[in-house]
Design a protein around this nucleic acid. Structure first.
Lengths: 352, 352
DNA sequence: CTTGTTTGCACAATCGATGGTGCAAGAACT
DNA sequence: AGTTCTTGCACCATCGATTGTGCAAACAAG
């Protein structure tokens, strides 16, 4: 590499090479040169030099001066999950299309971690923060507010800034109804044969549970409290809950509303521990879509949350300076068993 | 909020408040104060002020001065996939435990995009870059090299710096053998009944194919070229390949080696299009592990790559200044059908 | 009481880019 | 020719933190 002088070129280097001042170089390379009445020929010269020396602006310097960084943050609970990773994928595409740089970080559903992570991001002068699935959105809000950072909630709502979330009540209703209907042809479900497992005391779980209970009352007449088992999100806790139920009743409920694909993994673990059961008449409704789960040997009805829709809406709302702290609901979609939907990956071309 | 003066406190603010100079404040807050012989009482005073005013250092300024940012980059092909998202999850944990900030970005398997993304990250003065699954690792290397940035390859190897990858040959062998053995009790597989679908001309695919072919020759005696169908990674291309085979032969091969979970999604799409087939005697081996896929209605044997092992090794190697550009192989693991493994999520506590 | 030493800190340059301001040279006009 | 504009750019302060250097005050030694 001929031009690799090992250290990155700066506007000062180009300034010397071109015989112009650093400010002229800066203006040419950041596009404000017309405003500064720089001659086209001067600009041309500098652009060429920049090209041959592979100049790229030092964003820390730029950010320091302008107190903006071009970084847009996304705070996730976890990466390792189809729902959140497609959130990351979609978010990234949006940010890149705006010429900025996405920075996706997870905070493990831990309120303290969430705040600390937001603080770290702020110390990098990120321009905006999308708070997704935070356990304590308002806690993160405090931190952002103190730093004058634009932010918005996704997936789980806060009360201080706008939130864009799934319509979990409606989704819960859809899913519950689909599970019940699935049995109607054959042997209809009794109220105590339809359980909800997973989730905890967050807005999403509460709304889903509300939908679940409403539909149960409407269609099955009753809605025993025992049918709600909020185990938290950890797969192993869910597994233990299934195990306990199985221990007590000698079987699983025929109808299962599983609060998330993470909890569903708990069900898989349970099943792996009971290889001789065939779970013949089991119907699972899962609040989240995963293509592989959709093809399991028992009917799995899934809810796909509209990630693209949420991200798009969130970008709209965050731009709106006078947006009120209200909740924007995005409709999720019911996915019948054995359905392979396309995802954000399909937007990518596969270079052969 | 009383202390929220809306703008972030700087060392200059604390300098005024404490009556010390900015450099003293800086030294106290970045830990170099003993070296500078600052009195304990002065330090104490400043630390308290920093606390009450919620001071956090501006990392852009620090980074500008020290030409380090505390950011560690991970360049992924995509987010939306269990393998890569668990890579992100694991990477993040490692980086955070070192007190730095992870920045995970995807580049869609596009060599130009990969280089551009690396350049963007470099413009933020990231300290190290982990290049994972890059289509053109050596292209990214050029960019890093020119900027004097430490980097390492993961998942797909380059030739200029060390690479930490799965032992794909061995994994390919393991998986192929497991598929073949699965049939041995009943009706043994003929050579032209075992196909490999997916992948393209990258190191990983080549090695897996090499392992596949070697085992086929050893155990089945033959290894027809037609049994290798490198469709690329896009699910829809894989689907089309299955469709074409089905069209021609009226069925799928009994034994299927699917090169990645992404390609496996193509198989699901194919299946969704043929709802009346039950694929009774199908055995699928998939190079990647997904808990849901493991429980599909036909036997799915999977390979789990040791993500934790790869990341750990990569951190070791990247620290080693005199590391040669060799390939470090990490052994993957065979996963029998209907197995629910724990993942990085299980390390997180679930706050109830 | 003078001469070194040590202690404790302040000063100022620096990282690279930005943007307000000022000013010389040329053009236009009277 | 003298005055006023316009053009084209240079100069310099600034963002916030880091770091090499210098220097007074306190202290110890002689």
């Amino acid at each position: 590499m001929a031009s690799s002088s090992k250290k990155k070129a700066t506007i000062y280097d180009l300034s010397v090479l071109s015989g112009s001042s650093p400010s002229t170089v800066s203006a040419v390379l950041n596009g404000t040169w017309q405003k500064r009445r720089i001659k086209e020929s001067t600009a041309e010269l500098i652009r060429n030099l920049a090209e041959t020396h592979q100049y790229t602006a030092n964003r820390q310097a730029r950010g320091l001066r302008s107190s903006r960084s071009g970084l847009i943050g996304l705070l996730l609970p976890i990466h390792d999950n189809r729902y959140f990773s497609s959130m990351a994928q979609t978010f990234e595409a949006h940010v890149r299309s705006r010429g900025q740089c996405p920075i996706v970080v997870s905070a493990s559903r831990d309120p303290a971690e969430e705040r600390k992570t937001a603080e770290t991001l702020i110390s990098y002068s990120i321009d905006e923060l999308f708070i997704c699935g935070a356990t304590d959105p308002d806690g993160v809000h405090e931190v952002c507010e103190a730093a004058g950072l634009k932010h918005i909630n996704i997936d789980l709502p806060g009360t201080k800034v706008p939130s864009v979330i799934s319509d979990n009540y409606e989704g819960g209703r859809l899913l519950t109804e689909a599970i019940i209907r699935r049995f109607q042809e054959t042997r209809p479900l009794a109220p105590d044969e339809l359980y909800l497992f997973g989730g905890r005391d967050d807005h999403a779980s509460r709304e889903r549970i509300r939908g679940f209970r409403a539909v149960k009352r409407e269609l099955l007449g009753q809605d025993p409290d025992a049918c709600i088992q909020p185990t938290g999100y950890a797969p192993n806790n869910a597994r233990l809950a299934f195990e306990a139920f199985y221990e007590k009743h000698g079987r699983l409920p025929r109808g299962l509303f599983v609060n998330s694909s993470i909890n569903f993994e708990g069900l898989l673990r349970f099943m792996a521990g009971h290889p001789h059961e065939n779970f013949a008449d089991l119907v699972v409704g899962c609040y989240d879509y995963d293509p592989f789960a959709s093809f399991l040997p028992f009917p799995v009805i899934m809810i796909r949350q509209d990630v693209e829709g949420m991200i798009t809406k969130a970008f709209d709302v965050i731009e709106d300076a006078k947006a009120q702290p209200r909740i924007h609901l995005i409709q999720p979609e019911l996915v019948q068993p054995r359905t392979a939907l396309t995802g954000p990956l399909d937007a990518l071309r596969d270079i052969e």
